[in-house]
Design a protein around this nucleic acid. Structure first.
Lengths: 336, 336
DNA sequence: TCTTCCGGTCGAAACGTTTCGTTTTCCGGT
DNA sequence: ACCGGAAAACGAAACGTTTCGACCGGAAGA
């Protein structure tokens, strides 16, 4: 395969000159640039990324670590990041942790092996212990997306989850609901905790007592939300509404209701966080609290790129994005 | 950062011995292995991927190039490939072409720069010209997924698209439909062409004349299918059924029908290829022809890995997977 | 006219691995 | 006690870049 040596020989210049011409990293005369570029095209030269990263101490690779690429929410993030990277001359390596700590560790190790220039992480857990472990393994500019990990000095981009939780809950309360169940994620995931906090705040603001049985601990996935819904609706005095903390959990709830031969919103009102692309062909079109995913992702990659380029230390700033309530048809006035 | 040199010094052995111990690439005594591994752990040594790829001529990276990671169909492929790679000690770099030739070219160049060990491609086009261009840029083991590109010697894994098209169409015909529109992809995408071929075969087998106006050329996306549906349904003598060639196009059709205040399947029957995860909460639950995406992706990465390991030339074999008709509620008997 | 400086070019070193040919060590057989 | 040979360990070269100091010639300033 063609190397820069071949280019240099063909162009009749020194290797270092060819390098300078290709990268515009030092003054080179016009005609030499022309000759070098011609040579590059002629032999189809493509720089060796490995050699480059060896010499320069870091590669033009950016790592994106998220829970599950299969979730449309995260797929959107991946797409935005990819585009931005490509534009900036970087590649990105996307990895799904599947919410598994070991896997996250393994991925982080591969990232390190590739000497990635920077990292965007949506971590599996937000507790301090996990944060410490992460910090130990990470030695490059990093931006935390969606989730804040206590004790880590990195920049954070996330939704105002407390407000999101409050918005959803208050909408249901405004509709007359009092027994509102909520499907949460595992503890130690700040996203979930904050949304729950918003829920609790709304309840309290309206003088509604919290019922522990209505708090369902899941794993942000479809299955647990599905099962919990089945169980909850079979109880005496079932909830009249469910607030699902994520898109996947909402799908689980909706499925369960449908399986039981009940219907939304007649038998149960549902609100969730995260919009769906295909919302208008769902039955019913869901009322949701949506997050500006793409903008957040864009901000994350912009921040990271800036940090990489400026070689500046992370500011440790937390940037909040505002959620928005979109009223459709999955939540209705409580019939009495 | 720690290098293998540090490991060697700490373990009290030569660099080459440390390397052999780490990679098990040459006989090393038990106690030396133990010492080296201890040293690795102690200083947190992680090999430098770039240096490795420089020396070995290829990296432990596998490229996955697909149309759009945001499409759940492709996201599934990405997930399967990622898992398999990780298991085999590889990393994968996923890229979306957005059906753009230039972008595909740019991605391919980055892949080459990284000296990827292999490639899985779902190409944007299937014509010979494009194939030639591709072949020119690719110099590593490659597997073509979903799509066959004429003139390329690589292994191919794909759905039996002709049968898929026939299955869908025959189901509609069996329901009494005669005016069946079909939303296709751009020409030169073999996937679409084959599915269309199945449609035509089914029509012919049942003695139904083809109406050109019912052939809608799209780009496998939601928007074109949406617009076409709007137009088609406004015509005199509109189709009673639509066969959507992809999941995204089906979404477009469904949206359009819903917008017009009509309903599926009462006013229009719809069948499409590719199932939806959330099928049972769609209204109506769609009748589809589904493809075993995950199995196909697994087969693709297995084939690629085998090829990389054995350093054998590609067999150029085309492997077909069978589609399956799943009858739900979006297609019904034609009321007369 | 002599010096200074700068744009342009060059050569060589260094980055961290793996690999291959060579040397050392150790063992069993005579 | 010695030899032969296999197993284990070693040292050095090579992979393809970028970067840095050195060099050269010509223009500008004295």
């Amino acid at each position: 395969m063609a190397t820069i040596k071949d280019v240099a020989r063909l162009a009749g210049v020194a290797i270092s000159t060819a390098s300078a011409a290709i990268n515009r990293s030092a003054p080179v005369s016009e005609d030499v640039i022309a000759k070098v570029e011609a040579a590059v095209r002629q032999i189809g030269y493509v720089p060796h990324g490995g050699a480059r990263s060896l010499r320069m101490g870091q590669s033009r690779l950016i790592g994106l670590i998220l829970p599950d690429i299969t979730n449309p929410h995260f797929a959107k993030v991946a797409k935005v990041v990819e585009s931005a990277c490509l534009e900036a001359g970087y590649m990105d390596a996307v990895y799904s942790t599947s919410e598994d700590d070991d896997r996250e560790r393994q991925i982080l190790e591969m990232m390190r092996m590739q000497r990635v220039a920077g990292l965007i992480i949506i971590p599996t857990r937000s507790d301090a212990e996990h944060g410490a472990r992460l910090a130990e393994q990470i030695h490059v500019p990093t931006v935390l997306l969606d989730s804040f990990v206590t004790g880590l000095p990195y920049d954070v981009i996330k939704l105002d989850n407390v407000t999101a939780g409050r918005l959803a809950t208050e909408h249901l309360i405004g509709l007359g609901h009092r027994r509102i169940a909520v499907t949460t994620g595992r503890p130690n995931i700040i996203t979930g905790e904050d949304r729950l906090r918003g829920y609790l705040a709304a309840l309290e603001a309206h003088g509604i007592a919290l019922e522990q049985r209505l708090l369902i601990e899941g794993r942000f996935d479809q299955a647990t939300a599905h099962d919990a819904t089945l169980r909850l609706l079979a109880e005496p005095d079932p909830p009249t509404a469910i607030f699902a903390l994520s898109n996947m959990m909402a799908l689980g709830v909706l499925n369960a209701v449908q399986e039981m031969g009940l219907s939304v919103p007649a038998d149960l009102s549902v609100v969730n966080i995260d919009d769906f692309d295909f919302a208008n062909i769902m039955s019913p079109p869901p009322t949701v609290v949506s997050a500006p995913v793409e903008q957040m992702a864009q901000r994350a990659i912009d921040t990271l790129l800036a940090e990489i380029r400026s070689k500046s230390a992370p500011t440790g700033k937390v940037e909040l994005f505002e959620p928005r309530l979109i009223v459709r048809a999955s939540a209705s006035n409580l019939a009495r």
